[in-house]
Design a protein around this nucleic acid. Sequence first.
DNA 1: TTCCCTTCGAGAACATCGTTCGCGAACACT
DNA 2: AGTGTTCGCGAACGATGTTCTCGAAGGGAA
Lengths: 220, 220
Amino acid sequence: METVPVWLRERRTGVGRPAERSRAEVTAAAITLADREGLAAVSMRRVAAELGTGAASLYRYVDSRDDLLDLMTDEAAAAYQLPPPGGPWLAGLLEVCRQGRELMLRHPWLPELVLTRSALGPHGTDLLEHVLAILAEHPAGAGRKLEAFAVMSTLTAALALNEMNGSSGARQRQGAYLAHVIAAGRHPHLTAALTGGPLTPAPRFEETLSRVLVGLLGEE
Amino acid sequence: METVPVWLRERRTGVGRPAERSRAEVTAAAITLADREGLAAVSMRRVAAELGTGAASLYRYVDSRDDLLDLMTDEAAAAYQLPPPGGPWLAGLLEVCRQGRELMLRHPWLPELVLTRSALGPHGTDLLEHVLAILAEHPAGAGRKLEAFAVMSTLTAALALNEMNGSSGARQRQGAYLAHVIAAGRHPHLTAALTGGPLTPAPRFEETLSRVLVGLLGEE
DNA sequence: TTCCCTTCGAGAACATCGTTCGCGAACACT
DNA sequence: AGTGTTCGCGAACGATGTTCTCGAAGGGAA
């Protein structure tokens, strides 16, 4: 049972044969592959092929596929452009959410990893530090601030996931079933909600997160 | 490309050899297995073994493993005890969340499925209908009500997942890395948040969802 | 330069996975 | 009894994560 996290396993000293690749290269290859063919395509063998090596070689850089997924998540978080904190806290948090959404649209595999795997790496902790800095003057307790961070991440990922499923084939199946449910006539409120006009304008991403964050942290 | 959802595929008429099992039995076996050994143990072979049959037989009842996962999710939602709507809407929604949390603690595999797979089956639509009934008098538009349902489900699942990770080995790794980050001294706000007292009382589940829902739907 | 010790690369192997094929057996209906 | 249709499922295919193993490669000491 290895209790040391991925991010702490250190490169050995200059003794022995030097590695031909780096953990960063492996991570980058996995991200490239996931961007191109989806998360399901990220197998050890495919990632290795992307690098022109054998599958077993990857285990010199990564303990397991799960480790690699964590590395991908954290590496993606490196793209955040964190402005110096200042100004109203709500605007600061919304900017983080906005960038998060763009990141997830650019990396369609990210939401799933963020939602089901909560490990914070170096860039993840940088992001959390930034959020806490934005909230430094806020009177809420530390527990609530940490919770606000979790809620932000979760909802950003979930909303981005919903957005992307819009063009998927899953949406068609869901629509077909909902049509059946409506036709059955036993769900009056659902029917009214889905057929009443052009489905009242879907609340916009930023407005939703703004309302949630205000509810969580107060108007201030 | 099959555009008809799982829930609509109907049992054939009485012609031919009758099936020895039902889709409900297969689903129940998968749930039993997942409860006992986790979602990763739910393979077609293991589920079949649970039923005392061959793996290939399951494909008479289910098109794919993904279908089976959707069936598990919806079957779990059958356990909701939906009281007749009435009283203040916030209390009604919180009751749904409370039951949802208990469900997820009883079925530790549920959050992952709810978070990454959004298909609504018969029981899922019943639940949505119930939520919309609770909000029938609420002035918000249909879009916002549907969104509130999505946010409720997502946050309930995510918070339950966090609760359960408390006893996992993943928490230890995360703690070890956070200790390292604190020791490095480059994250003052994070350090303050994690070392300031006994980590200000973690905001309680219901209070969190109450604040979020009020933020989303207004005080009314 | 020579040697050694450590580390690396990766082919082969193992257990397991989701899924398909094909066929014999079983039942309902005429 | 015969026929049409469905069911159960052994066998097989391709792919997966991971471990074992060992030859090769390079740095530092001699």
